[in-house]
């Protein structure tokens, strides 16, 4: 299934940009908000304790931490969400992600060793799941796509598995 435009230097950007990327589920934003908030709870509690015990000026510990927490909980998830995208090709999975550090990863189905569909405690009430594919490479040995609807994730797993099976015959 070689695409003639694929290896032509003139068309390469067009080829990449033409393949419309699917967004992940928009409920990624609330899920990430909740997990970030839980993660930030630890430094907030720590800063609170310092605030009550040794703080010389009121707010010197708690305020910066609260600002950082607010940034991670309210600003970052939506920006990260906009960067996520994936494309299921006939024989490969492309995943792009990253708000500050962009990454654009292609995993050919033929290199996938096994597949996980995982539901975290925060994802479960939303009916979301994370699809992770494992390869034998040291770099990118596990490539994850978070917050797909659970049915989509299962369907993608079936599609990839079917491809691995078909490829052998």
């Amino acid at each position: 299934m070689t695409d003639p435009t694929m290896t032509n230097p003139e068309n390469i950007d067009a080829y990449y940009d033409d393949h419309a990327l699917n967004p992940i589920d928009p409920r990624y934003i609330p899920v990430t908000r909740i997990t970030s908030a839980i993660m930030m709870l630890f430094p907030i509690v720590g800063a609170g304790v310092l605030e009550f015990t040794i703080s010389p000026i009121p707010g010197i510990f708690i305020l910066p931490i609260l600002l950082i927490a607010a940034y991670f909980v309210f600003a970052v998830p939506a920006r990260k969400y906009r960067r996520w995208g994936y494309h299921m090709g006939a024989d490969r999975l492309r995943i792009i992600s990253g708000y500050l550090f962009h990454s654009d990863t292609i995993v050919p189905f033929g290199r996938i060793q096994h597949i996980d569909v995982e539901q975290g405690p925060v994802q479960r009430p939303y009916g979301l799941a994370t699809l992770t594919v494992y390869t034998a490479g040291n770099h990118n040995s596990a490539v994850s796509l978070p917050c797909l609807s659970h049915e989509d994730a299962l369907a993608m797993r079936e599609a990839i598995r079917a491809h691995i099976k078909r490829d052998l015959h």
């Binding site: 996938i112 060793q113 096994h114 597949i115 996980d116 569909v117 995982e118 539901q119 975290g120 405690p121 479960r124 797993r157 598995r161 691995i164 099976k165 052998l168």
Partner: peptide, 15 residues
């Protein structure tokens, strides 16, 4: 497996 983190792993025979 998993209580909070439900994980379902698929391992094709070929692999």
């Amino acid at each position: 497996s998993g209580l909070l983190n439900r994980s379902a792993r698929s391992i094709p025979y070929e692999r």
